[in-house]
């Protein structure tokens, strides 16, 4: 079986995307606190839900990223 090699650049990119998702999730949490008139300490106490939202966002991004990748490849092929 062939070894899979994940480049450092790929790891960096994925970590960056995950971080962006987490920041978005924190922002969502803040918006929810404002909309639902809940308490500000939920920024920290609801970290579990925040992580969950981050994971959902990350997963939702996957098909979009795949689509972008596919389009890029098609264009690259055409330009050759």
């Amino acid at each position: 079986m062939k070894d899979l090699v994940i480049s450092g650049k790929r790891v960096k990119t994925e970590l960056l995307i995950a971080l962006c998702c987490f920041v978005c999730a924190v922002l969502i949490n803040i918006v929810c606190i404002i909309v639902y008139h809940s308490q500000w300490h939920e920024i920290f106490s609801q970290i579990g839900f925040t992580v969950l939202v981050a994971v959902i966002l990350y997963v939702l991004l996957l098909p979009i990223r795949l689509l972008v990748l596919l389009c890029k490849k098609i264009f690259a092929k055409r330009n050759k």
Partner: peptide, 9 residues
């Protein structure tokens, strides 16, 4: 009581 994000979800 439910937290804001819990209500949202």
């Amino acid at each position: 009581y439910r937290s804001g994000i819990e209500q949202f979800l």
